[in-house]
Design a binder for these strands. Structure first.
Lengths: 218, 218
DNA sequence: AAATATTTTTAGACTAATCTAAAAATATAT
DNA sequence: ATATATTTTTAGATTAGTCTAAAAATATTT
């Protein structure tokens, strides 16, 4: 049996290794899990014993295929619940994360398969992240970050990196949502801010916003 | 903060005291919680410290108003999730209990209020049990147990006491569901079995079935 | 009312997950 | 390449919930 805490560590390791495929180090996990390095060491030993992770002392950790399977399944559940919350229960995209963090740990294959069907097999969650299917495969969308978009081109907003309530509320108040069409007008070299055109407005966004917004060329 | 285990103990105490309003004894809780009496003693001390229960050594335990509030809220969540599972996710009434046991512990007022609205404020769960409203009030239905129904009268099936999968499947296979009209034909004094008439059939049910089926006179 | 049985509590130990503080290993700087 | 800094691990303690076995309290029999 896998515990809730083990699941959360596995998920954290998965996310930390998904941007860059090498081993994940103890401190990174500690900061992601809001805990201390010593606790992480204990846990990765346990994950290693249970064959969810490969671990050699002082050398960081990687997930085994089993571990990855667990991680992807939790991500599937998390994202399906997020869709449910937004589409059926009137949650906004900045409110779903915390509740989904809990719902994702409910263990019932029937529950998640039926939920998937009830939602008509969605492929993206409310933040534009792909939802793995039952077998763990997910769509790979070719997206770039606004910071690297080219001046003069038009893009569609397809996702966010930062899913914090603060950032999502900022986007809401500037009328940026998934699907919004964005044209890059000007990049300011001084502070890396970017002027973009939306449907009815032009706004300037800071570098930190530009780094967290995913676009697809149209 | 209230833990999952505390919530489960509170729920168990509530259910044990709801049939008969006096104090609940340690062994009863131990058997309901599938644990040992010594563990129960530890926990009721803790619940007492946290003001969810009143407890005097060797004298059993009762819930405080706070404790009752917690219990009713969990029951509300449990039953709303059951309705969701049956009405939206194609679960049958014998499959919902286990999953609802987990879902009931998700803590989010918005989640449960929106779920309630999404389900159009149901007042009964799939087993005929009333669903408390936000304030904790629930409908009291005047129901009797089949074992005490009178020969010759007609009744509507309004609930079950035993919600085990075994019993519910037995009812399914005999075409008894919530709303089914039942006429009592004969009571057999020898073994307390009862012959009842359904829409298209007559069947004999044992005493243990008769004790677990709730009816309302029509 | 004394003897016996049952129930409940206590005492002490265990596991999972965590922590602090110190030690060990690795990485970086001079 | 040696010293210093950083990262990681170990050692030992803590908390929540559980257990077993023994002790204490209550209930039941005779």
């Amino acid at each position: 049996m896998i515990t809730l805490t083990e699941e959360n560590y596995i998920k954290a390791i998965y996310h930390l290794s998904s941007n860059g495929e090498k081993t994940v180090n103890t401190n990174a996990i500690a900061s992601a899990m809001q805990t201390k390095a010593s606790s992480v060491t204990d846990m990765i030993k346990k994950l290693s014993e249970k064959n969810y992770a490969d671990y050699k002392k002082y050398q960081g950790v990687t997930l085994t295929d089993d571990g990855k399977r667990v991680a992807v399944n939790i991500i599937r559940k998390h994202r399906l619940w997020e869709v449910f919350l937004v589409e059926k229960l009137n949650f906004s995209w900045d409110e779903v994360h915390e509740v989904a963090e809990h719902l994702e740990h409910i263990k019932s294959d029937k529950l998640i398969d039926e939920l998937d069907a009830f939602l008509e097999f969605p492929t993206y969650d409310p933040h534009g992240d792909p939802i793995p299917d039952k077998e763990g495969n997910f769509k790979h969308i070719e997206k770039i970050v606004l910071a690297k978009a080219e001046v003069g081109s038009a893009y569609k907003c397809v996702g966010v990196d930062d899913t914090s309530s603060k950032f999502l509320k900022y986007l809401d108040s500037n009328h940026i949502a998934l699907g919004t069409i964005i044209t890059v007008k000007h990049k300011e070299p001084f502070d890396n801010s970017i002027k973009i055109a939306l449907e009815n407005s032009e706004i300037v966004v800071s570098q930190s916003v530009a780094k967290n917004l995913y676009l697809k060329k149209i």
